[in-house]
Amino acid sequence: MAETKSASAQSASSQAHAETAVEDLTAQIAALREDLTKLSRSMAAVGQGAKTVVTEEAQELTDQLRERVRQEPIFMIAAAAGIGYLVGLLSRR
């Protein structure tokens, strides 16, 4: 009879320990989900910032190129023809 009570006490203790472990895991999973949500938002903000920087740089380069074409149209036409010629040579191979 004492063995039955001991086994029953151990079973209850094991069950309580298992329930505690499940609660801990549930809390950890909730914390991980929250962390992933925060990380996702941060990465979206970083991506948006990078997009803005790249867009501004592209606009700056485009403006510089337009200004250079206005200043030196003959040179730019020759440069475009030379680049076209090189691309043509490379595409034949």
Rank of each mutant, 00 (worst) to 15 (best):
M1S: 15
M1V: 15
M1I: 13
E3P: 08
E3V: 13
T4A: 15
K5W: 14
K5L: 15
S6K: 12
S6D: 14
A7Q: 13
A7R: 13
A9H: 06
A9G: 01
Q10A: 14
Q10E: 15
Q10R: 12
A12I: 13
Q15A: 09
A16E: 08
H17A: 12
A18N: 02
A18Q: 03
E19S: 10
E19Q: 06
A21Y: 07
D24M: 05
L25N: 05
L25H: 09
T26W: 02
Q28L: 13
Q28F: 09
Q28K: 10
I29A: 07
I29R: 01
A31P: 04
L32R: 06
L32T: 12
L32P: 00
D35K: 11
D35E: 14
L36S: 08
L36V: 05
L39F: 01
S40Q: 04
S40E: 03
S40H: 00
S42F: 03
M43V: 07
A45I: 00
V46S: 08
K51E: 11
T52R: 09
V53W: 02
V53F: 06
V54P: 01
V54W: 01
T55E: 09
T55F: 09
T55R: 13
E56V: 08
E57M: 10
A58F: 13
Q59A: 15
Q59V: 14
E60R: 12
L61S: 13
T62W: 00
T62F: 04
T62I: 05
D63E: 07
D63P: 03
L65Q: 02
R66D: 12
R68N: 07
R68A: 03
R68P: 01
V69L: 09
V69C: 02
E72S: 15
F75L: 15
F75Q: 15
F75M: 14
M76C: 11
M76A: 06
M76D: 05
I77N: 10
I77L: 12
A78H: 02
A78F: 00
A79S: 14
G84L: 00
Y85R: 08
Y85G: 00
L86H: 04
S91V: 06
S91L: 09
S91D: 08
S91N: 04
